[in-house]
Nucleic acid binder design. Structure first.
Length: 691
DNA sequence: ACGGCGATGTCCGACAGGCAGCCTG
DNA sequence: GTCGGACATCGCCGT
């Protein structure tokens, strides 16, 4: 179908044509022919990666804007939200307002109303807005749920809840659910009372093969051939360690290949940027940097975001030839490559190696073949034996993806969403809650089971026991604290843990930060660090020696060791240890540390807010201080200095050592005096800032 | 003859990823 | 269950 034939605004069509889009892909054509643009019915679009789901969504969204109704586009990852946001910004040319709302932005501060035509957001953020600012969505016409097959994961429940809430609040809303190919798209469509389009069509043909042999030898062969041929490769492995080692070894191979002089220069520039991402660079930075000059890179959660983006962009530019990635990349940003190799089709999971789901295989393999550049995408899976090859052919290449199931039906998850429903006055009787949960995918799949009702009633009970809700006759009302917990978006269990401990220690003489950190880790939100056997003894000994810095005795539960270790790492961070020190001492990579610190900061804030409501004033004060220290990685004495924009932990310490101990001291100093400490530009900026 | 270094062998132990808050008058 | 990595041993080479 030619783009001109699409029943949408001319301006939109012109814009697409100016980007070289002249024809619609078959699934997009089907979407138009389905009639949903006119009848406003819901639609489930279940097609492979890169089959043009985003453009399909754009057509529906623009159509909605034409009718004066705005659109919300929900994605599972922040990086993805950002990517879509940048993509949609081209509609600003047509006069549409595009907005991005994700958790780590402080843009939402002081905002009463958000003015948007298309809002791009993560599922959790969207749910959070829905809890406290539902009026933002008053004009909503279309809700796009991207990657809805993730209903099958831990993150899935919020997807279901979001849909059901939107449907309740805005009965006229049109829902477009975008899914990878799954086993039961018909169930999804039936639940949503939606039309269904399923298709296996891809813009670039995909050849899927399995190769048997020594895995590294195969990788070498494939890489050499591909690179000599001017192509690039994405290799999926199952562990971070594996990614790094393959990147290093293949880099050695590629080093010998002659590179154009300017290519080498550009690679050297990237190398420099990678090294300057952290100051001073860690050994991981150095390792990545040494791969990059050879044209390879590893990509996993241990990298800081700056490095990750750098790697992705250099790959897109064709400078980096091979990326060796953990599954981060399969679900993440759009990064196609002519060839994809799956080195590890198994993954370690609770004590054993298991074959990954077909769904995940399809996601990884779906990265093969760049639209507009390649005629064919190659996907190669490596097997050890002929037997395994046959098995892989059968299961993955010829097989169907699994059906997806709701993961909402467990008490902690239900509790979380039930509190939210009550707190935001969404449902306030047992009957209305039951009715609501019956409208979710969980209700659709399990609503007739006996257990269904019990799970929900048990969750309500617990919330009542924790004093987050109370009964007035048959009405369920939130307590003040219950409302705040729901707004903070923390788990009721976490809040309960914090409250019971903080109440106990409020009267203590001092609040040791290690103890508070240990408390913060006692939450469902914080993924705890792993303790190995060698560390176990060391940690036990350490716990004994710092016992008076803890708020409670170690033997209170089985997670204590992991919690202590995690808290211990945070403690080193706020004790001004460098990333490299932390990497060496605790084997925690910078990316991982960042990610956990961000959670810790949010939890510290939440704990202080809870304390505020409970009137635990000393806790409030100490937790506020701790929050700042976590954010900046400094000892208490540096807090006033890091409050100045442009001054972080390193500069603050330098200033302190030179005798500048508070912002006032800087005011009196000349730029000349500060230049040796901060560099001229920063010194000037900071003087300006202080004026 | 010795030392240094790289290639090969052996055993041990660790194993993906990542969302959520800031509220004023 | 597998793989990488640490460590040990062996063997080649140069001085």
């Amino acid at each position: 179908m030619l783009i001109d034939e699409a029943p949408i605004a001319e301006g939109f069509i012109d814009l697409l044509k100016s980007e070289g889009i002249t024809e619609l892909y078959p699934p997009q054509k089907e979407l138009i022919e389905s009639g949903i643009l006119d009848d406003g019915k819901n639609l489930v679009l279940s097609t492979p990666t890169a089959s043009g789901k985003t453009l399909a969504a754009e057509i529906v969204m623009i159509k909605s804007l034409e009718r004066g109704k705005n659109a919300v586009y929900v994605v599972p990852l922040r990086a993805l939200a950002y990517e879509k946001f940048l993509e949609f910004r081209r509609y600003e040319k047509l006069g549409h307002k595009i907005r991005l709302e994700i958790g780590d932005m402080d843009s939402s501060k002081y905002k009463r109303m958000l003015d948007f035509d298309i809002l791009v957001t993560t599922a959790e953020k969207c749910d959070s807005i829905l809890r406290s600012r539902p009026e933002w969505f008053r004009e909503i016409g279309i809700l796009v749920m991207d990657e809805i097959h993730l209903i099958n994961t831990d993150r899935g429940p919020v997807y279901e809840i979001l849909i059901s809430k939107f449907q309740r609040l805005f009965p006229e809303i049109q829902i477009l659910a975008l899914s990878a190919t799954i086993g039961n798209p018909d169930e999804l469509a039936d639940w949503l009372n939606a039309k269904l389009i399923r298709s296996e069509w891809r813009p670039v043909k995909l050849t899927e093969k399995v190769k048997v042999g020594d895995k590294f030898e195969e990788l070498k062969r494939i890489t050499n051939k591909e690179v000599a041929d001017g192509g690039q490769i994405l290799i999926f492995v199952s562990s971070k360690r594996g990614a790094e080692s393959v990147a290093e070894k293949l880099g050695e191979e590629l080093r010998l290949i002659r590179k154009r002089a300017n290519e080498l220069n550009e690679l050297r520039n990237i190398q420099k940027e990678i090294l300057s991402a952290l100051n001073p660079p860690t050994r991981q930075c150095k390792r990545l940097a040494s791969c990059v000059v050879n044209g390879t890179a590893f990509h996993h959660s241990g990298l800081v975001n700056k490095q990750r983006t750098l790697i992705e962009n250099s790959f897109k530019k064709g400078l980096i030839k091979v990326i060796i990635a953990t599954p981060t990349l399969a679900a993440g940003v759009n990064l196609p490559s002519r060839t994809v190799v799956i080195r590890d089709i198994k993954r370690y999971e609770h004590g054993r190696m298991t074959y990954i789901p077909v769904l995940e295989y399809k996601q990884q393999v779906g990265r093969a073949g760049r639209p507009r550049y390649d005629k064919i995408g190659n996907a190669i899976t490596l097997a050890k034996t002929d037997n395994e090859r046959d098995f892989l052919m059968e299961r993955y290449i010829l097989g169907e993806p699994e059906p997806i199931y709701s993961r909402l039906g467990v008490i902690p998850v239900l509790r979380f969403h039930i509190l939210a429903s009550i707190a935001s006055n969404f449902a306030n009787t047992e009957e209305s809650l039951l009715k609501f949960f019956r409208s979710t995918f969980f209700g659709y799949q399990y609503g007739s089971e006996e257990r269904f009702q019990d799970l929900i009633l048990d969750s309500i009970d617990e919330l009542k026991n924790w004093n987050f809700i109370w009964f007035r006759d048959k009405f369920l009302l939130p307590t003040k604290i219950g409302v705040r917990i729901s707004e903070l978006y923390i788990d009721p269990q976490t809040a309960h843990n914090y409250i019971s401990l903080l109440k106990k220690v409020e009267s203590m003489k001092w609040f040791p930060s290690l103890g508070l950190l240990e408390m913060l880790c006692d939450s469902l939100e914080m993924p705890l660090l792993w303790v190995n056997r060698w560390e176990e003894q060391k940690l036990l000994a350490e716990i004994e020696s710092v016992e008076d810095e803890l708020l409670r005795l170690p033997e209170e539960d089985s997670n204590f060791l992991e919690r202590f270790k995690t808290a211990r790492v945070f403690y080193d961070w706020i004790d001004e240890y460098s990333e490299e020190d932390i990497l060496r001492k605790h084997r925690v990579t910078p990316g991982l540390l960042n990610q956990k610190l961000q959670i810790a900061e949010w939890l510290a804030y939440s704990a202080s807010e809870i304390s505020k409501i409970l009137g635990l004033n000393r806790s409030v004060k100490e937790l506020k201080k701790l929050e700042m220290r976590i954010r900046h990685g400094v000892k208490e004495e540096l807090i006033p200095l890091v409050m100045i924009k442009g001054i972080g932990r390193v500069r603050a310490r330098r200033l302190w050592n030179a005798g500048f101990k508070k912002p006032g001291d800087l005011k009196n100093a000349s730029v000349r005096r500060l230049t040796p400490l901060l560099g001229e530009r920063t010194a000037e900026k900071i003087k300006m800032e202080l004026e």
